[in-house]
Design a protein around this nucleic acid. Structure first.
Lengths: 202, 202
DNA sequence: GCGTTCCGAGACGGCCCCGTCTCGTATTGG
DNA sequence: CCAATACGAGACGGGGCCGTCTCGGAACGC
Protein backbone atom coordinates (compact mmCIF):
# COMPACT_ATOMS: atom_id res chain seq x y z
CA UNK A 1 0.00 0.00 0.00
CA UNK A 2 1.04 3.53 -0.49
CA UNK A 3 0.03 4.48 3.05
CA UNK A 4 0.08 8.20 2.37
CA UNK A 5 2.79 10.11 4.07
CA UNK A 6 3.75 8.69 7.43
CA UNK A 7 7.23 10.06 7.56
CA UNK A 8 9.04 7.54 9.67
CA UNK A 9 9.45 9.57 12.87
CA UNK A 10 6.47 10.23 15.10
CA UNK A 11 4.61 13.31 14.07
CA UNK A 12 2.91 15.46 16.67
CA UNK A 13 -0.78 16.25 16.47
CA UNK A 14 -3.80 14.23 15.49
CA UNK A 15 -2.91 11.32 13.27
CA UNK A 16 -4.55 10.78 9.92
CA UNK A 17 -7.71 8.76 9.94
CA UNK A 18 -7.40 5.38 8.29
CA UNK A 19 -11.18 5.44 7.98
CA UNK A 20 -10.93 8.48 5.74
CA UNK A 21 -8.41 6.68 3.53
CA UNK A 22 -10.82 3.81 3.13
CA UNK A 23 -13.88 5.99 2.65
CA UNK A 24 -12.23 7.90 -0.18
CA UNK A 25 -11.08 4.85 -2.10
CA UNK A 26 -14.38 3.14 -1.46
CA UNK A 27 -16.26 6.14 -2.80
CA UNK A 28 -14.18 6.20 -5.97
CA UNK A 29 -14.84 2.51 -6.51
CA UNK A 30 -18.54 2.98 -5.90
CA UNK A 31 -18.78 5.77 -8.44
CA UNK A 32 -16.93 3.81 -11.09
CA UNK A 33 -19.07 0.80 -10.30
CA UNK A 34 -22.15 2.91 -10.95
CA UNK A 35 -20.90 3.59 -14.43
CA UNK A 36 -18.92 6.79 -14.10
CA UNK A 37 -16.15 7.41 -16.57
CA UNK A 38 -12.78 8.17 -15.06
CA UNK A 39 -12.98 11.44 -16.91
CA UNK A 40 -16.25 12.17 -15.13
CA UNK A 41 -14.75 11.62 -11.73
CA UNK A 42 -13.52 14.65 -9.87
CA UNK A 43 -11.86 15.05 -6.54
CA UNK A 44 -14.79 17.16 -5.54
CA UNK A 45 -17.32 14.48 -6.39
CA UNK A 46 -15.34 11.71 -4.76
CA UNK A 47 -14.96 13.74 -1.58
CA UNK A 48 -18.67 14.47 -1.53
CA UNK A 49 -19.51 10.81 -2.06
CA UNK A 50 -17.08 9.82 0.67
CA UNK A 51 -18.50 12.35 3.11
CA UNK A 52 -15.09 13.93 3.43
CA UNK A 53 -13.64 17.38 3.00
CA UNK A 54 -11.73 18.11 -0.18
CA UNK A 55 -8.69 19.04 1.88
CA UNK A 56 -8.71 15.56 3.36
CA UNK A 57 -8.23 14.15 -0.10
CA UNK A 58 -5.59 16.66 -1.15
CA UNK A 59 -3.74 16.02 2.10
CA UNK A 60 -3.18 12.42 0.92
CA UNK A 61 -2.95 12.56 -2.83
CA UNK A 62 -1.61 15.18 -5.18
CA UNK A 63 -4.44 14.79 -7.64
CA UNK A 64 -6.76 12.42 -9.47
CA UNK A 65 -4.01 10.40 -11.11
CA UNK A 66 -2.22 9.60 -7.88
CA UNK A 67 -5.50 8.66 -6.26
CA UNK A 68 -6.48 6.42 -9.15
CA UNK A 69 -3.30 4.44 -8.91
CA UNK A 70 -4.09 3.61 -5.30
CA UNK A 71 -7.67 2.82 -6.25
CA UNK A 72 -6.37 0.28 -8.71
CA UNK A 73 -4.00 -1.17 -6.18
CA UNK A 74 -6.84 -1.68 -3.74
CA UNK A 75 -8.29 -4.22 -6.15
CA UNK A 76 -5.22 -6.37 -6.35
CA UNK A 77 -5.23 -9.80 -4.81
CA UNK A 78 -1.84 -11.31 -4.07
CA UNK A 79 -0.40 -13.22 -6.99
CA UNK A 80 -0.29 -16.93 -6.19
CA UNK A 81 2.91 -18.61 -7.21
CA UNK A 82 1.69 -21.22 -9.67
CA UNK A 83 4.55 -23.70 -9.24
CA UNK A 84 2.19 -26.57 -10.01
CA UNK A 85 3.13 -29.97 -11.23
CA UNK A 86 2.72 -29.50 -14.99
CA UNK A 87 3.16 -26.53 -17.25
CA UNK A 88 -0.39 -27.10 -18.41
CA UNK A 89 -1.76 -26.76 -14.89
CA UNK A 90 0.30 -23.64 -14.24
CA UNK A 91 -1.09 -22.01 -17.35
CA UNK A 92 -4.61 -22.92 -16.30
CA UNK A 93 -3.96 -21.43 -12.89
CA UNK A 94 -2.81 -18.14 -14.39
CA UNK A 95 -5.67 -17.88 -16.84
CA UNK A 96 -8.16 -18.92 -14.19
CA UNK A 97 -6.90 -16.07 -12.06
CA UNK A 98 -7.61 -13.69 -14.91
CA UNK A 99 -11.06 -15.14 -15.28
CA UNK A 100 -11.91 -14.85 -11.61
CA UNK A 101 -10.64 -11.31 -11.55
CA UNK A 102 -13.03 -10.59 -14.39
CA UNK A 103 -15.92 -12.06 -12.43
CA UNK A 104 -15.32 -10.80 -8.92
CA UNK A 105 -18.27 -8.74 -7.76
CA UNK A 106 -16.79 -5.28 -8.06
CA UNK A 107 -13.98 -6.05 -10.42
CA UNK A 108 -16.41 -7.12 -13.07
CA UNK A 109 -17.62 -3.82 -14.46
CA UNK A 110 -14.98 -2.05 -12.51
CA UNK A 111 -11.61 -3.48 -13.30
CA UNK A 112 -12.69 -3.39 -16.87
CA UNK A 113 -13.61 0.25 -16.71
CA UNK A 114 -10.49 1.28 -14.90
CA UNK A 115 -8.17 -0.74 -17.06
CA UNK A 116 -9.69 0.28 -20.35
CA UNK A 117 -9.90 3.92 -19.50
CA UNK A 118 -6.61 3.94 -17.81
CA UNK A 119 -4.42 3.83 -20.82
CA UNK A 120 -6.18 6.81 -22.06
CA UNK A 121 -3.85 8.52 -19.64
CA UNK A 122 -0.51 7.31 -20.85
CA UNK A 123 1.01 8.16 -17.51
CA UNK A 124 -1.57 6.31 -15.47
CA UNK A 125 -1.30 3.28 -17.69
CA UNK A 126 2.47 3.18 -17.60
CA UNK A 127 2.41 3.37 -13.83
CA UNK A 128 -0.16 0.60 -13.57
CA UNK A 129 1.70 -1.48 -16.11
CA UNK A 130 4.97 -1.15 -14.27
CA UNK A 131 3.55 -1.83 -10.84
CA UNK A 132 1.00 -4.54 -11.46
CA UNK A 133 1.10 -6.09 -14.89
CA UNK A 134 4.83 -6.56 -15.19
CA UNK A 135 5.07 -9.01 -12.31
CA UNK A 136 2.28 -11.16 -13.67
CA UNK A 137 3.71 -11.16 -17.14
CA UNK A 138 7.11 -12.21 -15.88
CA UNK A 139 5.49 -15.09 -14.03
CA UNK A 140 3.83 -16.22 -17.24
CA UNK A 141 7.10 -16.00 -19.14
CA UNK A 142 8.75 -18.18 -16.56
CA UNK A 143 6.12 -20.87 -16.91
CA UNK A 144 6.43 -20.76 -20.69
CA UNK A 145 10.21 -20.99 -20.54
CA UNK A 146 9.88 -23.99 -18.31
CA UNK A 147 7.49 -25.52 -20.81
CA UNK A 148 10.06 -25.06 -23.55
CA UNK A 149 12.82 -26.52 -21.47
CA UNK A 150 10.71 -29.57 -20.71
CA UNK A 151 9.82 -30.02 -24.34
CA UNK A 152 6.13 -29.39 -23.78
CA UNK A 153 6.25 -26.30 -25.99
CA UNK A 154 8.05 -25.79 -29.26
CA UNK A 155 11.26 -23.85 -28.83
CA UNK A 156 11.08 -21.83 -32.04
CA UNK A 157 8.24 -19.54 -30.97
CA UNK A 158 8.61 -16.02 -29.68
CA UNK A 159 7.95 -15.86 -25.96
CA UNK A 160 5.88 -12.73 -26.28
CA UNK A 161 3.73 -14.20 -29.01
CA UNK A 162 3.25 -17.32 -26.96
CA UNK A 163 2.07 -15.28 -24.01
CA UNK A 164 -0.44 -13.45 -26.19
CA UNK A 165 -1.76 -16.68 -27.64
CA UNK A 166 -2.74 -17.84 -24.17
CA UNK A 167 -3.81 -14.58 -22.57
CA UNK A 168 -5.26 -12.81 -25.59
CA UNK A 169 -8.44 -14.88 -25.85
CA UNK A 170 -9.12 -14.55 -22.13
CA UNK A 171 -8.35 -10.84 -22.09
CA UNK A 172 -10.54 -10.38 -25.10
CA UNK A 173 -13.46 -11.65 -23.08
CA UNK A 174 -12.67 -10.06 -19.78
CA UNK A 175 -12.08 -6.62 -21.19
CA UNK A 176 -13.94 -6.30 -24.43
CA UNK A 177 -17.03 -8.46 -24.34
CA UNK A 178 -19.25 -6.62 -21.89
CA UNK A 179 -20.89 -8.97 -19.45
CA UNK A 180 -20.46 -11.86 -21.77
CA UNK A 181 -19.86 -15.34 -20.49
CA UNK A 182 -16.73 -16.30 -18.63
CA UNK A 183 -17.89 -19.87 -18.17
CA UNK A 184 -16.47 -22.33 -15.71
CA UNK A 185 -14.04 -24.35 -17.81
CA UNK A 186 -12.85 -21.49 -20.03
CA UNK A 187 -9.28 -21.42 -18.79
CA UNK A 188 -8.85 -25.16 -19.31
CA UNK A 189 -10.37 -25.03 -22.77
CA UNK A 190 -8.15 -22.20 -23.92
CA UNK A 191 -4.98 -23.68 -22.51
CA UNK A 192 -5.64 -27.15 -23.87
CA UNK A 193 -6.55 -25.89 -27.32
CA UNK A 194 -3.65 -23.49 -27.66
CA UNK A 195 -1.24 -25.96 -26.12
CA UNK A 196 -2.21 -28.45 -28.79
CA UNK A 197 -1.05 -25.95 -31.38
CA UNK A 198 2.28 -25.12 -29.82
CA UNK A 199 3.26 -28.67 -28.89
CA UNK A 200 6.44 -29.87 -30.58
CA UNK A 201 5.66 -31.54 -33.90
CA UNK A 202 6.06 -35.29 -33.82
CA UNK B 1 -21.62 7.95 -43.98
CA UNK B 2 -24.07 9.73 -41.79
CA UNK B 3 -24.05 12.81 -43.99
CA UNK B 4 -25.68 15.01 -41.39
CA UNK B 5 -29.20 16.06 -42.23
CA UNK B 6 -29.76 16.45 -45.93
CA UNK B 7 -33.48 15.89 -45.87
CA UNK B 8 -34.15 14.40 -49.26
CA UNK B 9 -35.92 17.34 -50.89
CA UNK B 10 -33.98 20.41 -51.91
CA UNK B 11 -33.68 22.91 -49.12
CA UNK B 12 -33.57 26.60 -49.85
CA UNK B 13 -30.71 28.75 -48.70
CA UNK B 14 -26.98 28.18 -48.52
CA UNK B 15 -26.07 24.51 -48.42
CA UNK B 16 -23.91 23.08 -45.67
CA UNK B 17 -20.22 23.14 -46.32
CA UNK B 18 -18.69 19.73 -46.82
CA UNK B 19 -15.39 21.36 -45.95
CA UNK B 20 -16.69 22.18 -42.50
CA UNK B 21 -17.76 18.57 -42.01
CA UNK B 22 -14.28 17.42 -42.86
CA UNK B 23 -12.53 20.10 -40.82
CA UNK B 24 -14.45 19.15 -37.70
CA UNK B 25 -13.78 15.44 -37.92
CA UNK B 26 -10.20 16.10 -38.89
CA UNK B 27 -9.75 18.34 -35.86
CA UNK B 28 -11.16 15.71 -33.53
CA UNK B 29 -8.79 13.14 -34.98
CA UNK B 30 -5.85 15.50 -34.66
CA UNK B 31 -6.58 16.18 -31.00
CA UNK B 32 -6.93 12.51 -30.16
CA UNK B 33 -3.78 11.80 -32.13
CA UNK B 34 -1.97 14.32 -29.96
CA UNK B 35 -2.90 12.34 -26.90
CA UNK B 36 -6.15 13.87 -25.74
CA UNK B 37 -8.53 11.69 -23.81
CA UNK B 38 -12.06 11.52 -25.16
CA UNK B 39 -13.11 12.89 -21.81
CA UNK B 40 -10.83 15.87 -22.40
CA UNK B 41 -12.36 16.64 -25.73
CA UNK B 42 -15.12 19.21 -25.83
CA UNK B 43 -17.21 20.54 -28.64
CA UNK B 44 -15.77 23.93 -27.87
CA UNK B 45 -12.20 22.74 -28.22
CA UNK B 46 -12.86 20.78 -31.37
CA UNK B 47 -14.58 23.76 -32.97
CA UNK B 48 -11.67 26.01 -32.03
CA UNK B 49 -9.16 23.53 -33.45
CA UNK B 50 -11.22 23.19 -36.61
CA UNK B 51 -11.49 26.95 -37.09
CA UNK B 52 -15.24 26.65 -37.01
CA UNK B 53 -18.07 28.17 -35.00
CA UNK B 54 -19.63 26.09 -32.27
CA UNK B 55 -23.00 26.48 -33.92
CA UNK B 56 -21.59 24.85 -37.04
CA UNK B 57 -20.87 21.75 -34.99
CA UNK B 58 -24.20 21.72 -33.18
CA UNK B 59 -25.96 22.18 -36.49
CA UNK B 60 -24.60 18.78 -37.54
CA UNK B 61 -24.36 16.73 -34.40
CA UNK B 62 -26.43 16.69 -31.25
CA UNK B 63 -23.41 16.38 -28.98
CA UNK B 64 -20.05 14.76 -28.38
CA UNK B 65 -21.30 11.22 -28.57
CA UNK B 66 -22.94 11.58 -31.93
CA UNK B 67 -19.85 13.31 -33.27
CA UNK B 68 -17.55 10.60 -31.95
CA UNK B 69 -19.46 7.87 -33.73
CA UNK B 70 -18.89 9.65 -37.03
CA UNK B 71 -15.26 10.21 -36.12
CA UNK B 72 -14.87 6.48 -35.67
CA UNK B 73 -16.62 5.78 -38.90
CA UNK B 74 -14.25 8.06 -40.75
CA UNK B 75 -11.48 5.61 -39.93
CA UNK B 76 -13.19 2.62 -41.45
CA UNK B 77 -11.88 1.09 -44.61
CA UNK B 78 -14.32 -1.04 -46.55
CA UNK B 79 -14.33 -4.64 -45.41
CA UNK B 80 -12.84 -6.86 -48.11
CA UNK B 81 -14.78 -10.05 -48.68
CA UNK B 82 -12.18 -12.69 -47.86
CA UNK B 83 -13.64 -15.50 -49.99
CA UNK B 84 -10.17 -16.85 -50.59
CA UNK B 85 -9.27 -20.33 -51.59
CA UNK B 86 -8.56 -21.86 -48.19
CA UNK B 87 -9.95 -21.21 -44.76
CA UNK B 88 -6.42 -20.61 -43.58
CA UNK B 89 -5.91 -17.82 -46.09
CA UNK B 90 -9.21 -16.22 -45.21
CA UNK B 91 -8.27 -16.15 -41.56
CA UNK B 92 -4.92 -14.62 -42.41
CA UNK B 93 -6.67 -12.00 -44.49
CA UNK B 94 -8.97 -11.04 -41.63
CA UNK B 95 -6.20 -10.88 -39.03
CA UNK B 96 -3.93 -9.04 -41.42
CA UNK B 97 -6.64 -6.44 -41.81
CA UNK B 98 -6.67 -6.00 -38.05
CA UNK B 99 -2.92 -5.67 -38.03
CA UNK B 100 -2.84 -3.09 -40.77
CA UNK B 101 -5.58 -1.14 -39.07
CA UNK B 102 -3.42 -1.10 -35.97
CA UNK B 103 -0.48 0.23 -37.96
CA UNK B 104 -2.09 2.78 -40.23
CA UNK B 105 -0.58 6.16 -39.62
CA UNK B 106 -3.36 7.73 -37.64
CA UNK B 107 -5.14 4.63 -36.54
CA UNK B 108 -2.13 3.55 -34.56
CA UNK B 109 -2.39 5.66 -31.46
CA UNK B 110 -5.80 6.76 -32.47
CA UNK B 111 -7.98 3.76 -33.08
CA UNK B 112 -6.53 2.38 -29.89
CA UNK B 113 -7.47 5.46 -27.93
CA UNK B 114 -10.92 5.73 -29.36
CA UNK B 115 -11.72 2.06 -29.00
CA UNK B 116 -10.39 1.68 -25.51
CA UNK B 117 -11.99 4.82 -24.21
CA UNK B 118 -15.12 4.27 -26.10
CA UNK B 119 -16.58 1.59 -23.98
CA UNK B 120 -16.22 3.80 -21.07
CA UNK B 121 -19.39 5.26 -22.51
CA UNK B 122 -21.59 2.22 -22.66
CA UNK B 123 -23.79 3.96 -25.20
CA UNK B 124 -20.98 4.94 -27.49
CA UNK B 125 -19.52 1.48 -27.36
CA UNK B 126 -22.79 -0.24 -28.05
CA UNK B 127 -23.38 1.99 -31.04
CA UNK B 128 -19.91 1.33 -32.40
CA UNK B 129 -20.22 -2.37 -31.73
CA UNK B 130 -23.53 -2.60 -33.54
CA UNK B 131 -22.47 -0.53 -36.53
CA UNK B 132 -18.91 -1.62 -37.11
CA UNK B 133 -17.79 -4.64 -35.17
CA UNK B 134 -20.82 -6.83 -35.73
CA UNK B 135 -20.35 -7.06 -39.48
CA UNK B 136 -16.72 -8.06 -39.16
CA UNK B 137 -17.47 -10.63 -36.50
CA UNK B 138 -20.16 -12.21 -38.62
CA UNK B 139 -17.68 -12.47 -41.46
CA UNK B 140 -15.26 -14.27 -39.21
CA UNK B 141 -17.94 -16.66 -37.99
CA UNK B 142 -18.77 -17.52 -41.55
CA UNK B 143 -15.19 -18.39 -42.36
CA UNK B 144 -14.95 -20.53 -39.24
CA UNK B 145 -18.17 -22.34 -40.04
CA UNK B 146 -16.85 -23.07 -43.48
CA UNK B 147 -13.70 -24.43 -41.88
CA UNK B 148 -15.76 -26.78 -39.77
CA UNK B 149 -17.83 -27.91 -42.71
CA UNK B 150 -14.68 -28.67 -44.68
CA UNK B 151 -13.18 -30.58 -41.81
CA UNK B 152 -10.29 -28.15 -41.36
CA UNK B 153 -11.50 -27.24 -37.88
CA UNK B 154 -12.85 -29.50 -35.16
CA UNK B 155 -16.61 -29.34 -34.93
CA UNK B 156 -16.87 -29.60 -31.16
CA UNK B 157 -15.59 -26.12 -30.35
CA UNK B 158 -17.73 -23.11 -29.54
CA UNK B 159 -17.75 -20.68 -32.43
CA UNK B 160 -17.33 -17.71 -30.14
CA UNK B 161 -14.36 -19.26 -28.38
CA UNK B 162 -12.82 -20.11 -31.69
CA UNK B 163 -13.14 -16.52 -32.84
CA UNK B 164 -11.46 -15.29 -29.67
CA UNK B 165 -8.63 -17.75 -30.06
CA UNK B 166 -7.74 -16.22 -33.40
CA UNK B 167 -8.52 -12.57 -32.80
CA UNK B 168 -7.59 -12.31 -29.11
CA UNK B 169 -3.82 -12.46 -29.57
CA UNK B 170 -3.92 -9.88 -32.35
CA UNK B 171 -6.29 -7.60 -30.45
CA UNK B 172 -4.14 -7.94 -27.41
CA UNK B 173 -1.29 -6.40 -29.33
CA UNK B 174 -3.18 -3.82 -31.28
CA UNK B 175 -5.05 -2.46 -28.30
CA UNK B 176 -3.06 -3.17 -25.19
CA UNK B 177 0.62 -3.24 -26.03
CA UNK B 178 1.40 0.41 -26.63
CA UNK B 179 3.51 0.87 -29.73
CA UNK B 180 4.80 -2.65 -29.49
CA UNK B 181 5.62 -4.64 -32.55
CA UNK B 182 3.05 -5.74 -35.07
CA UNK B 183 5.62 -7.47 -37.25
CA UNK B 184 5.13 -8.47 -40.84
CA UNK B 185 4.22 -12.13 -40.55
CA UNK B 186 2.20 -11.89 -37.35
CA UNK B 187 -1.16 -12.78 -38.86
CA UNK B 188 0.24 -15.89 -40.54
CA UNK B 189 2.02 -17.00 -37.38
CA UNK B 190 -1.05 -16.66 -35.20
CA UNK B 191 -3.34 -18.37 -37.67
CA UNK B 192 -0.99 -21.24 -38.34
CA UNK B 193 -0.27 -21.84 -34.67
CA UNK B 194 -3.87 -21.67 -33.49
CA UNK B 195 -5.06 -23.65 -36.49
CA UNK B 196 -2.69 -26.39 -35.51
CA UNK B 197 -4.46 -26.58 -32.17
CA UNK B 198 -8.00 -26.68 -33.51
CA UNK B 199 -7.38 -29.10 -36.36
CA UNK B 200 -9.35 -32.34 -36.09
CA UNK B 201 -7.43 -34.96 -34.17
CA UNK B 202 -6.11 -37.71 -36.37
C1' DG C 1 -32.91 41.01 -55.87
C1' DC C 2 -35.24 38.22 -52.20
C1' DG C 3 -35.92 34.85 -48.86
C1' DT C 4 -33.59 31.37 -46.75
C1' DT C 5 -30.04 28.94 -44.74
C1' DC C 6 -25.39 28.65 -43.93
C1' DC C 7 -20.86 30.62 -42.23
C1' DG C 8 -17.16 32.22 -38.33
C1' DA C 9 -16.98 34.62 -34.21
C1' DG C 10 -18.11 35.06 -29.92
C1' DA C 11 -21.36 36.81 -26.04
C1' DC C 12 -24.29 34.81 -22.61
C1' DG C 13 -25.91 32.56 -18.10
C1' DG C 14 -25.36 28.50 -15.89
C1' DC C 15 -22.82 24.68 -14.22
C1' DC C 16 -18.99 22.01 -12.38
C1' DC C 17 -14.46 21.70 -11.17
C1' DC C 18 -9.72 23.19 -9.59
C1' DG C 19 -6.53 23.79 -5.59
C1' DT C 20 -6.09 26.79 -1.63
C1' DC C 21 -7.65 28.58 2.48
C1' DT C 22 -10.39 29.48 6.63
C1' DC C 23 -13.65 28.22 9.86
C1' DG C 24 -14.75 25.65 14.48
C1' DT C 25 -13.84 21.24 16.36
C1' DA C 26 -11.47 16.73 17.53
C1' DT C 27 -7.51 14.00 18.87
C1' DT C 28 -2.97 13.10 19.69
C1' DG C 29 1.93 13.62 22.54
C1' DG C 30 4.25 16.01 26.04
C1' DC D 1 -3.24 22.42 29.59
C1' DC D 2 -0.67 23.29 25.21
C1' DA D 3 1.09 22.86 20.68
C1' DA D 4 0.36 20.51 16.62
C1' DT D 5 -2.10 18.30 13.28
C1' DA D 6 -6.15 16.23 11.82
C1' DC D 7 -11.20 16.50 10.67
C1' DG D 8 -15.90 18.08 7.83
C1' DA D 9 -17.73 21.93 5.67
C1' DG D 10 -17.55 25.08 2.54
C1' DA D 11 -16.04 29.94 0.77
C1' DC D 12 -13.08 31.69 -2.73
C1' DG D 13 -11.23 33.31 -7.39
C1' DG D 14 -10.21 31.30 -11.61
C1' DG D 15 -11.12 28.38 -15.49
C1' DG D 16 -13.45 25.54 -19.02
C1' DC D 17 -17.45 23.86 -21.04
C1' DC D 18 -22.46 23.59 -22.10
C1' DG D 19 -26.05 24.74 -25.49
C1' DT D 20 -28.38 28.84 -27.17
C1' DC D 21 -28.38 33.03 -29.40
C1' DT D 22 -27.01 37.09 -32.06
C1' DC D 23 -24.09 39.39 -35.04
C1' DG D 24 -22.68 40.72 -40.21
C1' DG D 25 -21.68 38.46 -44.19
C1' DA D 26 -21.80 34.59 -47.81
C1' DA D 27 -24.08 31.36 -51.00
C1' DC D 28 -27.81 29.20 -52.69
C1' DG D 29 -32.96 28.72 -55.58
C1' DC D 30 -36.21 31.36 -57.57
Amino acid sequence: MTAPGYAGARLPGRPRSAAADAAIIEAALRLIEEGATIGELSIERIAREAGVGKATVYRRWSGKEALMIDVMRSLEEPNPRPAGASVRDDLVTLLELMRRRGLAKRNSALLRTVVTQMHANQELWRAYDAHVIAARREMLYEVLRRGMARGEIRGDLDLELLADLFTGPMLSRVILHEWKALPEGLAETIVDTVLEGVRPRP
